[in-house]
Nucleic acid binder design. Structure first.
Lengths: 341, 341
DNA sequence: TCAATTTGATTAAACGTTACATCACTGTAA
DNA sequence: TTACAGTGATGTAACGTTTAATCAAATTGA
């Protein structure tokens, strides 16, 4: 029943050769207007659609890219809507270029053979795994690739990253501007050259610029998740330092933090000011709504796809490194130090 | 440079025929242990991986399924992490069966020709579009298909749905049990046979059972989004009825609602009890944490994949309709009517 | 010992395309 | 007139697999 109609059938019905039909489909311009019409009409009638695999087999491109989200099944970051937004951006961008997107949640020991197997046009890799063996494997494939939020050192890799340093700086400056001096940083895992690392650098720069000495005591490396934030609250509550503000390096950890503080009798912003990072959608509906560093995640995804497709089509020798700007969004969770009760 | 090694190369090097290599790969059992070893060794050495498109071309299956999320670009439900969790469940389930997942955010007038084009093994369709032309097209394809949260009436379609009626009942009963009598329902768009419709039915059943007459005045059909919830707060605040509790038919709308109430000077749970639906991850970290109807979204996605793959492989003539149970999770946002201030 | 069977391997056609080489015309320039 | 270019079409090899049809050799049974 599912015997699909092929280019041969079209050729037979139209009384032309398969080559001609192929030429019509691919608009090579080597066909007369008459036959083009004739063939197209029959294609319509028969609801013919060319087989992707046959094409792929000949052309060695699949019009398929994969977006690799390493932590999909690890549960660490799964609940950060931020990543989904990224994926959405990718899907969105791809859709405009008639390629389709394979979604791939990998574990660290993924073997990536599917790239060769499926003749993928390209790969978008989300999240740092700079030092993992996976990266190595991907590179060996020699397939076009764009790294999103990965902060890899090699300058010849295509990357889209956020201006995290600026974000860290901006947020810290905001707090200092409000009169806070003892500002904790809820950094998340702080690995050299990672997202949080850069945000931390910005934090340090702001402090230094304002003559505030940084105190390692104030750096909390709890996981950058909602639970991590929740747990960090304990540490802050029992800290010897008189912390008056916290810079959480992700909105989700800020959420957990605020809730955690609440549970030990500290409320935001009256007892402590809190600023987040990412500006995920919920932040404006939280109580209190969250001051945060905003990034345009959707366009981040789209930018990545565009870079990838340029690379695939060899269109433009585009820049290999795009840094997405950040901005500060002030809401209710941060108030002047003086207004503290 | 990217001249990949094919089955022919392997055959040549191993000094056997391509058929033999193919037999080794597919473990047809028609090959001697000796040659199996010999060939496998060379396959390893050459890092050979069989071309998916060539296989596909022969076998007419792509080991590819698509998960269709209709509102990906519509923005209506994009911010409900619930849907992403569903997608994650699908990816997760698929991964265990060595098929890969194409992510597809469609608009209503999607033509679905890619199904034929790519020889997709199957389709998982998320979200209601029962009366759209898209459904019609999908059905015509004759491709295995599972509908997730789609509530279609045809009994011969494969569907995975939530026991929404029970959820609506359970939540309402909970509120009634706490002594509430004037219970508003923040239903979202209330179309016959849709998710919210069933939840609403459950709501009505609980009321009736307890001898409370339902009041159309108390039904708020605001969009089931965070903004929708926010806007609903106004209506509730200005309602003539003395509403003491609200059943929001999604957690995100509950979030928006609580924030909205807060902004007009009503706080939860002291002024109003609020119960949500879905149990998305954030709910437990909200202030107050949200009482809600819990569903296991991840397993929902996985169930759908499993059904789909059973259908594809013709494994079991499984049941076509799976209803996922719900349960009540009580947290801080609902309190006894008597304790109201 | 010889026929019958089993085991292990090969040949070649097919899947649905694309693209190169070829060809039959029609017209045009010398 | 002949040569030549241009136009529009065709024939066919190739892409990398799978699989049915064969086949040769080894093993078995009587």
């Amino acid at each position: 029943m599912n015997n699909k109609v092929s280019i041969k059938d079209i050729a037979r019905i139209a009384n032309v050769s398969v080559a001609t039909v192929s030429n019509v489909i691919n608009q090579t311009g080597r066909v007369s207007a008459n036959t083009i019409n004739k063939v197209n009409k029959i294609i319509q009638e028969q609801q013919f659609v060319p087989s992707a695999s046959a094409r792929n087999l000949k052309n060695k491109n699949s019009h398929l890219i994969a977006v690799v989200v390493p932590f999909l099944e690890k549960g660490i970051l799964q609940d950060n809507p931020f990543y989904w937004e990224l994926v959405r951006g990718v899907e969105n961008g791809a859709r405009n270029h008639e390629v389709q997107v394979i979604l791939l949640g990998t574990n660290e020991d993924e073997d990536f053979s599917f790239v060769k197997q499926r003749d993928l046009d390209g790969l978008i890799v989300v999240g740092t795994f700079g030092h993992s063996s996976a990266l190595q494997k991907v590179m060996e494939m020699g397939v076009p690739c764009v790294f999103l939020d990965s902060y890899l050192s090699s300058p010849d890799l295509y990357q889209v990253n956020l201006d995290d340093e600026a974000g860290g700086y901006l947020g810290t400056k905001h707090l200092i501007g409000l009169g806070h001096k003892t500002i904790a940083a809820l950094t998340g895992k702080l690995e050299e050259g990672g997202v949080n690392y850069f945000r931390y650098q910005g934090y340090l720069r702001a402090l230094q610029e304002c003559g505030i000495s940084s105190d390692p005591e104030l750096v909390i490396e709890e996981f950058s998740s909602i639970q991590g934030g929740y747990q960090a609250a304990q540490k802050i509550g029992s800290s010897k330092s008189r912390i008056s503000a916290v810079f959480a390096f992700s909105d989700v950890s800020a959420m957990g933090l605020i809730r955690g503080l609440h549970d030990i009798g500290l409320s935001v912003p009256t007892d402590l000011s809190v600023i987040g990072f990412d500006d995920i959608f919920y932040t404006q509906f939280m109580i209190p709504s969250l001051t945060t560093i905003r990034q345009d995640v959707l366009s981040k995804g789209q930018t990545a796809v565009n870079m990838l497709l340029d690379q695939i089509n060899g269109t433009v020798s585009s820049t290999r490194n795009v840094t997405i700007p950040v901005s500060l969004t002030v809401r209710q969770s941060t108030i002047p130090y003086s207004k503290k009760v």
